[in-house]
Amino acid sequence: MADKLQNIQIRTEALSLHYGAFQALKEVDLDIPARRITALIGPSGCGKSTFLKTLNRMNDLIEGVRVSGKVLIDGEDIYDPAVDVPLLRKKIGMVFQKPNPFPMTVYDNIAYGPRIHGIRNRRDLDEIVVRSLKDAALWPEVKDRLKTNALDLSGGQQQRLCIARALAVEPEILLLDESTSALDPASTSKIEDLMTQLKARYTIVMVTHNMQQAARISDWTAVFMLGEVIEYNRTGQLFNQPREQQTEAYLTGRFG
């Protein structure tokens, strides 16, 4: 399958992960292309979210996690001890399942990232805030509310704010962990449209439970099962002609 891929930005080699005695990922090899949307699907507990979090080392925050194998991003092993983890995470934005805006103003939410990475100039910050909100398709709705508390926005707006917040630090990769599962259909479709626009500039990896969503917007789809990738292909092919029986069973809703 890798031979069909060009422009690989993320490559995992024999990536395994243990939570204590439990092995959540079993030697996963996966090549993820640049500036495409790659969907990770599979039943609950199959390791897809865990896999996503190995890509920006969010698993480091959980006690008792051990990772082996390699995660290469632009050819660099991000588990090398010399890697500066905060800088790595700046390069790889993440949006979570539930919107998690900080309890501050809309403006300060967006400016948080640039500020911690050293941008202090008010005019630069203003520019970043406006650009990020526009990129996240939120600007028209909040342009007069930059000083209101972000928690006063609706759930869908909050999630786009979180996307804008992630874009503000100029990442190259965007990880979405079931980022529309807590939203209503209208907000979901807004975010899906947004992702199809953003993939021109960002590599997007999204975990989703919504198979229609994966089919609608992703270019490549990987199916996880019990910590392994059982099938990985172009989304159209994978949905129309799954190679594996388990994939077909999962896609048709016979389990998972």
């Binding site: 920006n56 969010m58 925050l61 905060p86 800088l87 790595l88 995470r89 700046k90 934005g93 993440m94 979570f96 539930k98 998690n100 805006p101 900080f102 309890p103 948080y112 990232g113 911690i116 990475h117 979180c162 917040r165 992630a166 630090v169």
Partner: peptide
Amino acid sequence: SLREGAYALGST
């Protein structure tokens, strides 16, 4: 989730 969000932006 707030901590996660902050770490994901590259906070120390």
